[in-house]
Simulated scan of single mutants.
Amino acid sequence: MNPSRCTGLDLVKWLAMITMVADHLRFIWPTADWLFVIGRIAFPLFCLGIAANVARSAAGQVFTAANGRYLGWMLAFSLLSEWPYHALDVGTGTLSIMPTLTLGLLLAWGVHHRTQGMKWVGLAVLLVSLLATDVLMYGWLGVLLPSAFLLALRGGWGTWLVPGFVAVAANLSNRWLRDHPAAPFTLMTLGAALLSARLGVSVLQGRYPMHVWRVGRWGYWFYPLHLVAIKLLAH
């Protein structure tokens, strides 16, 4: 599959942003634990968006102006997002989600383009992710998730289970979930992570009679700015 710019891709990004905001609304309503479950849909959908974007590029053509801009924006907002993220006092001890997604993009490029240089880049990214797994949100498995989606898009509908189970494993970087594997809340959380892959692939590959508002570069700004807004509303 080589998805072109389509309504399905924009819908995936909108769903990712909506579920992310729902998750972060817990900082305004701390007792609304169910928002955490909904929030487990967001990260896999962001990873699917990365995979779809990577799949659109011709294999072997990694050094393009478009890819340079893509990586530049990801790196820039990896830096710009740290202060708003930590300003919420999340207490997780990890970086924001942006470094995980940026490393995931680089690894997906290595998987997709398969040039000798990108293979080494992919191996280096994987090594860094393993060494830095404790400070990366969702750990090294989170870095792996865009590549898992990329392979799923190549293999057809049934392989959504692969990124689904990677998403489940990545969520187990949360200590409370690991320590309470049989708790109903844990099962609901991991179930949402698993099914998010099926939901995302279905939305991406759907056919729609309408177009939705395109999620362009303003989407990069949305992440740190919504964190600032929630911080202000929470006090």
Rank of each mutant, 00 (worst) to 15 (best):
L144R: 00
L187D: 10
K231H: 14
S129G: 15
F43G: 01
A229Y: 06
I50G: 00
T100Q: 07
P30N: 09
A167E: 06
S147A: 15
A52T: 01
L88K: 06
D89W: 13
R178H: 04
G156D: 12
K231P: 02
S4V: 11
V212T: 08
A132V: 02
W157A: 14
G142T: 02
S96G: 12
W73K: 01
W83R: 04
P181E: 11
W213K: 09
T133K: 12
Y220G: 03
P44C: 07
G191Y: 11
H211K: 15
L130G: 06
D33A: 10
M210C: 12
S202Q: 11
V166Q: 02
L95S: 09
L151F: 07
F165H: 04
R214E: 13
A152F: 09
R26L: 08
P163A: 06
L131D: 10
R214M: 09
L145W: 07
N174V: 12
A169S: 14
C6S: 15
L187C: 10
M98W: 08
H180R: 12
T94K: 04
L177M: 12
Q116V: 05
R40V: 02
L225E: 07
V201M: 15
C6V: 03
I97H: 07
G122P: 01
P44M: 03
M74G: 01
V21C: 07
V125I: 14
T133N: 14
G110M: 05
P146N: 02
V121A: 13
P99C: 10
V125F: 05
K119I: 05
R214C: 08
W157S: 11
A197D: 13
G72F: 14
W176I: 01
L150I: 02
A169P: 05
Y85G: 02
T94W: 09
S78R: 00
K13T: 00
Y223V: 01
G200E: 09
D134E: 11
L227G: 00
S4C: 05
P224Y: 08
A51W: 14
L190A: 07
A182Q: 13
L161Y: 12
W176Y: 11
Y138N: 03
V121F: 03
K231F: 15
A193S: 15
N53W: 15
A66K: 13
V90Y: 11
Y85L: 04
R114M: 05
L80K: 01
L75D: 04
A192E: 04
T133E: 14
L126T: 06
Y70W: 14
P163N: 07
G117P: 04
W29A: 09
M1Y: 13
H226P: 01
N53V: 01
L187M: 13
S173A: 13
S81A: 15
L79N: 10
D33T: 13
A22M: 09
W218I: 05
L127D: 10
H86D: 13
G122R: 04
A65P: 10
L227E: 06
G200D: 05
R154M: 11
G104H: 06
G72P: 03
W34P: 03
T64K: 08
G60T: 06
W73S: 00
A16K: 02
M188A: 15
L71P: 00
I28F: 10
H226Y: 11
A167T: 02
G142Q: 06
H113Y: 12
A66S: 15
F46W: 12
T186H: 12
I41F: 15
G60V: 01
L144E: 07
K231M: 10
W218T: 00
G117D: 08
T7R: 00
P3V: 07
R56Q: 14
